[in-house]
Design a protein around this nucleic acid. Structure first.
Lengths: 260, 260
DNA sequence: CGTCTTTTTGAATACTGTCAATTTAAGTGG
DNA sequence: CCACTTAAATTGACAGTATTCAAAAAGACG
């Protein structure tokens, strides 16, 4: 495992403002074969005919406005979702109105896999900005899986990847201090931006300091202080939610060294 | 999610010492239909004919002596393993000979699911005592999955359960103090012992203080101090690796309250 | 333009980590 | 079987880091 994969997060850099729609359900159908996210998303690694059998499932689309929930913990499980645009956070409820953020999700990433275990969603997914998702009915997906062994393999790989992702986060939470955590978070973000064709060194955070803190297991004040410290060390330029990484390599060394 | 599911761990209470064998590979074949672990393990939820189609895969068996590795990070992925007896830890390598324990595994639990993502094991599995596992060849398993939709469903559920399990641990690592972490760990252990027919209140820890600490994101000295504190609060009786829970309910309140 | 939220920063506190010493248990070889 | 060596666990004193509480500054929104 590389150090840069240690944190897993999300954010999007919208080149042009997307048209805003607040309808919760859109009737559009979606085809994987022609989707510009096909190499990041579920059809990743599948061949043409397998993609077409995904197309036959007729995935729906849904828009979720900023601040709204895609699903909530306890909701009956029917759909898996693939992010088309925008950013989500997923979180677990803690006693006393508090929440633990368990992940951030960006274009091409699947959501809802934790619901397969018990037939109900274990976490809540909230849109951090206006978003659009593909809705994938799980019962239909299983039929496609029965048809094609490679689709079964692809699903298993995606679920396994989620397990590996969480291993990384455990490592982060279990053995790093504040600076290492934030550095790992930013590096992971940087990688995911790059994979989506955006700049790896300059991006806009879609989540608040409190959400970053919850995800990284530290208080929002500590997140803010650590941003300031990185700025003083000339690793970053930070202006509220706009981040510019000045020295990617040195930021990587923050994670690797001093792992107390 | 209940608070008691927050940590996930392992230990076994061996009623009579098992015969010791150090052969790395045993030729025995195993049948799920007659296995006493069938309600905890892979065949959980499957009917008779589906279990028989698992039986046809002819799972092998393997003994792993205390301290030996079942697999190591980087090993090529061929098998998934089900614990038959004994306890494993899985861990990730950290820079500088250090390790992060990512889980403890006991009878009936599957191991190696994180290897599906990349075709190579992401973690290392070490036996904490003399153990025995079923070896399940992944390529064969996929054939059985193709035959039966329910086996596919069962596998997906097990993987999803692993994701949920790790969510819980993230919550623990992200938002609890030392006492809450150890209490959550012990409650989880207690539950898993109970599910296997052992006492829920008295058991033998198979892992060291350092391993517990690595898993819970704290130093071994803090683990030891917290055990002592619980003893003074008359929540536990601890003698090295032998633990007796005096008040399960109050231990539960330690987790629920004060979640700073 | 005023209100509410988010972010930043400071000062004091609390918790966990670090270092070190001691005790206990476990394993080794005479 | 016992003396010896090694490893694991406990406990204390101190240091370091992150949290808490508080206040001020900067945006966001109507």
């Amino acid at each position: 495992m590389t150090l840069a994969t240690v944190a897993t997060n999300v954010l999007t850099f919208v080149p042009a403002a997307a048209a805003r729609t607040r309808m919760p359900v859109a009737p559009l159908k979606t085809s994987c074969s022609t989707c510009h996210l096909r190499d990041l998303c579920l059809p990743c690694g599948l061949n043409g005919s397998e993609r077409e059998s995904l197309d036959r499932l007729m995935f729906g689309r849904r828009k979720v406005a900023a601040g709204q929930a895609l699903y909530r913990a306890g909701d009956k499980f029917r759909f898996i979702y693939a992010v088309r645009s925008g950013t989500f956070k997923s979180s677990l409820a803690l006693p006393g109105d508090r929440e633990q953020v368990s992940g951030f999700h960006m274009a091409g990433e699947l959501m809802g896999l934790d619901a397969i275990a018990n037939g109900a969603h274990a976490s809540t997914a909230i849109a951090l900005e206006d978003t659009e998702v593909c809705t994938i009915q799980y019962s239909h997906l299983n039929e496609a899986i029965a048809e094609s062994g490679n689709i079964q393999l692809a699903m298993a790989q995606l679920m396994s990847r989620e397990i590996v992702r969480e291993h990384s986060l455990m490592m982060l939470l279990g053995s790093m201090n504040a600076e290492e955590r934030l550095a790992a978070f930013l590096l992971n973000l940087s990688q995911r931006m790059k994979a989506r064709g955006y700049s790896a060194t300059e991006f806009h955070l879609r989540m608040s300091r409190a959400e970053i803190g919850s995800y990284l297991g530290m208080k929002l004040e500590t997140v803010s202080r650590t941003f300031s410290a990185f700025q003083q060390q000339e690793l970053l330029e930070v202006d509220k939610k706009h981040v510019r990484i000045l020295d990617l390599e040195r930021l990587g060394r923050v994670v690797a060294t001093r792992m107390h």
